[in-house]
Design a protein around this nucleic acid. Structure first.
Length: 462
DNA sequence: ATAACAGGACTGTTGATTGT
DNA sequence: ACAATCAACAGTCCTGTTAT
């Protein structure tokens, strides 16, 4: 078949510099293609599986990829998964490799993207297109390219029977944009490089699953490092909590740009005044404000490597630590403002606020380690006091409704509750045994063993 | 049945202009 | 100086059509 792809050189003014693409668009280079057992060869791309840079089994030596993560299908990878489970990724694979981005759930299996071989991808099956979507978008994000949905085919029942995903640099800029005569502005920088990478899945009724029919690798452009890959619109998502936060602020007539600035501020504050000054903390504890539990903040925490904890209203002591720190800050602000030195912001943000709450420095001595020691001791005190199925009392927490009649003479404990889950950190999930079956997650220190008294036994018997 | 191109409707991005 | 607006431009995603 004649290749109908637009030849870029046929369109647009020849004298115009369309911006650097680093790619020879007339390049006739052959790209490796991994075609699934059900797939046919495609015509527009020359298939050359025996290319020097590719092994006979379809795995890739990655000779041409500068990026540590990209197209890394060497034999070495196959063994890696077996050697260790947790921490090999970051050290071995360069920057394109955050653990949470490396794992995708397909069916009931956890798949490590960097451990996938070409054959592994070719043999993949998905329960639905959503699963395939999820896999390939995560795959692209991990490897450093942007995925675009391409062809879709449905049967007479409107069920999807084929779905194709491509690299977003697939094809070339459309003819209609390049050949227009009424152009008023200069061309934008070229973004398409005729990249051949793609994944295609077909529905197999006999299996009732979507199987990979075509998997092509070998990008003809530089891949994007993980530090910026998330910035592309494809991977930029606003979480529901972020949306709620924005809506809330907008309802108070705060301008959009200020809202975004505020949301950025929280992260820049942590980066500039905690991370740079004190090192990467092990954990940072905040309250449950939407700004702290939003996707952006969670992503920032994951990327930086600290654990984000939220203190609940149950844990008055923990909030107390924050409040004490706040109190110190307020005092200092007052002092500085009376001095009228006009630099209170600097004193607040830069110098006077230390690590608030559990912001102890990683592997430090002094305050950090003392805090850690205390925490470990406390943990050991409350760890595994109860087992699943145990009946327990729960302390009457300050925010719980008290008996209107009894008032301050209400009981301190309520229950019984049944332990339905035990967490490693001394927390428990408990279910109320009364009619309303409320479920709480609560620290073990607020529980005590439930012993049914004789009076209760009597009542239940009657 | 599968593969791939063409083209259209719609959406998102960009950057210049206008408003505060 | 900063913020808001808007038109031009380009991308996305889908369907129709044709070839294999």
């Amino acid at each position: 078949m004649e290749n109908k792809n637009n030849d870029f050189t046929d369109f647009g003014p020849a004298e115009y510099d369309y911006g650097s693409t680093d790619v020879d668009l007339n390049d006739d280079k052959t790209y490796p293609v991994i075609v699934g057992s059900q797939g046919k060869s495609t015509e527009n791309v020359e298939h050359n599986v025996d290319d020097d840079s590719y092994n006979n089994d379809g795995s890739h030596d990655n000779a041409s990829d500068d990026d540590g993560c990209s197209g890394d299908y060497s034999e070495d990878d196959k063994g890696e998964d077996d050697e260790s489970e947790g921490d090999e990724g970051k050290d071995d694979k360069g920057d394109n490799n955050l653990d949470e981005d490396d794992v995708v759930v397909v069916g009931e299996e956890m798949v490590r993207i960097n451990s996938l071989t070409a054959d592994g991808i070719r043999a993949m099956e998905f329960a639905g297109v959503v699963e395939a979507d999820d896999f390939y978008f995560k795959y692209g994000k991990c490897k450093g390219f942007y995925v675009r949905k391409s062809d879709i085919r449905c049967n007479v029942n409107d069920e999807i029977v084929m779905r194709q995903y491509v690299c977003n640099k697939q094809g070339l800029r459309e003819k209609k944009h390049l050949s227009r005569s009424d152009r008023q502005r200069d061309h934008r920088r070229l973004t398409r490089t005729k990249c051949p990478s793609r994944l295609r899945v077909h529905y197999r009724p006999k299996k009732g699953r979507y199987v990979v029919s075509i998997s092509e690798e070998g990008h003809n452009h530089e891949l994007t490092p993980s530090s910026v890959v998330h910035l592309h619109p494809v991977y930029r998502k606003i979480s529901e909590t972020d949306k709620a936060q924005i809506d809330g602020l907008q309802s108070h007539e705060i301008r959009t740009c200020h809202i975004m600035g505020y949301m950025e501020f929280v992260m820049s504050f942590i980066q500039n005044h905690i991370l740079y000054r004190f090192g990467i903390p092990e954990t940072i504890t905040t309250d449950e404000g939407l700004i702290f539990i939003g996707q952006k903040m969670v992503g920032f925490a994951n990327q930086t490597g600290f654990k984000l904890l939220t203190s609940t209203p149950y844990y008055a002591e923990e909030n107390g630590q924050l409040e004490v720190a706040n109190k110190i800050v307020i005092t200092l602000i007052k002092k500085h403002s009376t001095k009228a030195n006009g630099n209170s912001k600097r004193s607040i943000l830069g110098y006077d606020v230390g690590c608030v709450g559990r912001c102890g420095r990683r592997k430090t001595d002094g305050i950090g380690s003392a805090f850690e020691e205390k925490r470990t001791r406390r943990k050991s005190l409350y760890k595994n006091l109860f087992n699943i199925g145990d009946s327990v009392w729960k302390v009457h927490l300050p925010m719980d409704k008290i008996d209107r009649v009894l008032g301050k003479w209400s009981t301190n404990w309520e229950g019984p509750f049944k332990v339905i889950q035990v967490f490693l950190n001394g927390a428990y999930e408990i279910e109320e045994l009364a009619s309303n079956n409320r479920i709480f997650r609560i620290n073990g220190k607020f529980l005590k063993k439930y012993m049914s008294i004789l009076q209760e036994v009597k009542i239940t018997q009657e």
